[in-house]
Design a protein around this nucleic acid. Structure first.
Length: 490
RNA sequence: GGCGCCGUGGCCAAGUGGUAAGGCAAGGGUCUGCAAAACCCUGAUCAGCGGUCCAAAUCCGCUCGGCGCCUCCA
């Protein structure tokens, strides 16, 4: 059974067949660099990070390209306002973008081209489109002739006539058709400008992605991704430009768009998170409140094409579930093997014990295998992360159950490895939250050792005091039959 | 005006023709000096109405309620 991907172009799930066997050319729309990124961006990047990791898991080589749009109206406006160059503005937000996506455990793309880095290609494309009659020049501007493009509107599933019905307020009379869009714009005084056959100017709004794809991937790519809000006009125009220029179709074989994240608020309104509206949660602030695993598990617990309304309470709930997954992959304390058998086992013959253990071991191995199959089946069906995650929980339960039944650490290990591996495909580390307090580990271990002696001496009041005081400091102790474990809590 | 999405147990969320995954919360247990964790058990007929079908949460129609795109936007 092949992997299926829902493509916006055909509006249905399609078998994934790459242009080159075993290789995936992936392009994901990156941010406009006029402000920091918010959780909505993070959602999109996490979705496509998951997609990339899954392809790799399935044995594909993936080349992932993500653009930085570093020349655009808002960046120019911001630069002018802050009396800086667009390069300076871009640099600040690129650095921040990389810091934040690293923190979110998003794998780096193979290339991060910048719009200003592909100006010659942009000019080349514009010239080519002019030569072929797909574009025309007006006073230093170059416009794409929308009616000339084959099937314009096929991605957004709209016809030009329908769109004309929608009132477009300011129609530029110099354009042949109101929907024609700029490939190249003559620059106004004080704006960044590049030399071109049409005079000083700068790129239009959509051409940079066509150019970057051409440079980084070539004429045709396998998957083009982005947020749902960028389908029209951005991606529609990209298709028109690229296919008209190269003459090769399709430009992208599969178009994937993640649903938009909304910000649930007390005031009852749940609007799309948008930097223009101002109802944003910056990634930085979210990272201050939740761990990367929590954020990712939360965002992936809903299918990527289903809209999601962010609430901190829901992320917190996810954190508690994550704790169970994390606990399942933690090994039992060392000494476990020695006295792991319950007293009742003393009455059993060794062979019986061995036999029952082997039985449990096999059962666990079987569950691990089933989990892997369920995980793959879910992910193969248009990246069904909710069901994939459900499979992970099922495996965690089996591991914990086996441990409760005193299975040996070695018996748990393979299932734990499977859980770690599959969680890793979703980008979950299942690691304890990193904290300065981890440096206190040796001291905590010491307190645990002392407390153990107190308990042996039945000095429970003192033992409890140790535990309570540590709890106040954010260290939770848990006594189990195999010893005491500890963890950092919020 | 055009295009499109969503409404499933207290909350989050899968399922898209054969009698409802998973998570959180809650209640009851097991274990334990206690606590915690873990494990076990308990709960929904799928916004409403009508229709198609042997059979519908799942298809069709209508109603109500949310939301997105058509303009920069992940």
């Amino acid at each position: 059974m092949p992997l299926k991907i829902y493509s916006t172009l055909t509006r249905q799930k399609e078998d994934f067949i790459p242009n080159k066997p075993g290789y995936v050319a992936l392009y994901v729309c990156g941010p406009n660099l006029y402000d920091p990124c918010h959780v909505g961006h993070a959602f999109s990047y996490i979705v496509f990070d998951m997609v990339k990791r899954y392809f790799k898991f399935r044995g594909y080589a993936v080349r992932h390209v993500q653009n930085f749009t570093d020349i655009e109206d808002r960046i120019i406006a911001k630069a002018q306002k802050e009396n800086k160059t667009i390069q300076e503005i871009a640099q600040v937000y690129i650095a921040r973008f990389l810091d934040e996506t690293d923190a979110l455990n998003i794998e780096r793309a193979d290339a991060y081209p910048r719009a200003t880095g592909v100006i010659p290609t942009i000019i080349e494309i514009a010239q080519g489109l002019l030569a072929q009659g797909f574009a025309y020049q007006v006073e230093g501007d170059v416009y794409f002739r929308v009616r000339q493009a084959d099937g314009y509107g096929k991605l957004a599933h709209r016809s030009l006539d329908q769109m004309e019905a929608g009132a477009r307020i300011q129609v530029d009379e110099r354009k042949d058709d109101p929907m024609d869009f700029a490939l190249w714009k003559a620059s106004k005084p004080g704006e960044p400008a590049w030399d071109s056959p049409w005079g000083k100017g700068r790129p239009g709004w959509h051409i940079e992605c066509s150019a970057m794809n051409l440079v980084e991937h070539g004429d045709q790519i396998d998957i083009h991704g982005g947020g749902h809000d960028v389908i029209f006009p951005h991606h529609e125009n990209e298709i028109a430009q690229s296919e008209s220029y190269t003459g090769k179709k399709p430009f992208a074989k599969y178009w994937m768009h993640n649903a938009l994240l909304r910000l649930a608020s007390d005031t009852s309104d749940e609007d799309k998170m948008s930097r223009h509206v101002g109802n944003t949660l910056w990634i930085k602030d979210v990272l201050a409140r939740h761990t990367p695993d929590e954020i990712r598990l939360y965002l992936l617990s809903t299918h990527y094409r289903t809209p999601l309304a962010w609430t901190d309470a829901d992320v917190d709930a996810m954190a508690r579930g994550l704790e169970r997954l994390r606990a399942a992959v933690v090994s039992a304390p060392e000494k476990a093997t020695a006295d792991r058998r319950p007293p009742t086992a003393a009455n059993l013959g060794l062979n019986d014990v061995d036999r029952s253990e082997r039985h449990a071991e096999n059962a666990l191995a079987q569950v691990a295998q089933q989990t892997r199959e369920k995980f793959i089946a879910a992910m193969d069906d248009d990246f069904g992360t909710p069901q994939a995650i459900a499979a992970l929980y099922d495996l965690a339960r089996e591991i914990n159950r086996a441990r409760n039944e005193n299975a040996a650490a070695e018996a748990l290990a393979p299932a734990q490895a499977t859980l770690r591996e599959l969680a890793g495909v979703l980008g979950l580390t299942l690691e304890e939250p990193q904290s300065k307090m981890m440096q206190a580990a040796p001291f905590i271990e010491l307190l645990i050792a002392i407390r153990k002696e107190l308990r042996a001496a039945k000095q429970f009041a003192l033992a409890d005091k140790v535990r309570d005081e540590l709890a106040k400091l954010g260290v939770a102790l848990e006594d189990g039959p195999q010893g005491t474990t500890w963890k950092i809590v919020n």
